[in-house]
Amino acid sequence: MNYNWDWGVLIREPYFEWLVSGFLWTISVSVAAWILAFSLGSVVGIARTTNSKLLRGIGTCYVETFRNIPLLVQMFLWYFVFPELLPEDAGMWVKRELPMPEFTTAVVCLGLYTASRVAEQVRAGIEAIGQGQRNAGLAMGLTPAQVYRYVLLPVSYRIIVPPLTSEFLTIFKNSSLALTIGVLETTAQARQIEEYTFQGFEAFTAATLLYIIVTSTVMLLMKLIEGRLRIPGMISLGAK
């Protein structure tokens, strides 16, 4: 196989802009989905540690549903099936009026999926603290909400920093699935450059480097932060 190397293609018009725009889409999808995943995941995770049977049941159902269907299938369900299940007007609104439909769908899908994983980490974090602290809090006359607010959550979030970092990196990598519904993020742009120029090696290498740079930077930053957040005498939960 002879292959014509041409690394210049990566900085040529308009391919350089494609890569940049793809990278920005990747970041936007990841960050927006992470905000959703983190907030919703926290709520679901906390629900699974409460004393209410109903809340625990809802939390469990949520986690099991989202964890046991492949993410790609979920993406298709949100994009193709969900609008058809709505009343016609609402379905049409989702398909036409929703701002940036592909982007929004990808964010919602990734966010809801990752929330189920975040929820598991939050729950593990709270459970790692043990019943003693909870009882101590209650014995002091704190309401259950106060126990969570002042005793359980401050500690549990600090010990689950490493697994949450790895969940963020997972969402960052999973954002590439958005290409299946037409979001032109980094991987999609690499493919498009390959299609237009036939310089597959160069395009894919560029995409790979972009992912590695972000992953390494995030890991490095979090290592620094982890050191400051670590609670003396308590082990932090390892990334799974």
Binding site: K95, P101, G182
Partner: peptide
């Protein structure tokens, strides 16, 4: 709207997307 193949493109028109 970027699609993967003809059926997906056609579906976009049929479903009003």
């Amino acid at each position: 709207l970027m699609v993967k193949d003809h059926p997906q493109g056609w579906l976009a028109v049929e479903s009003g997307r």
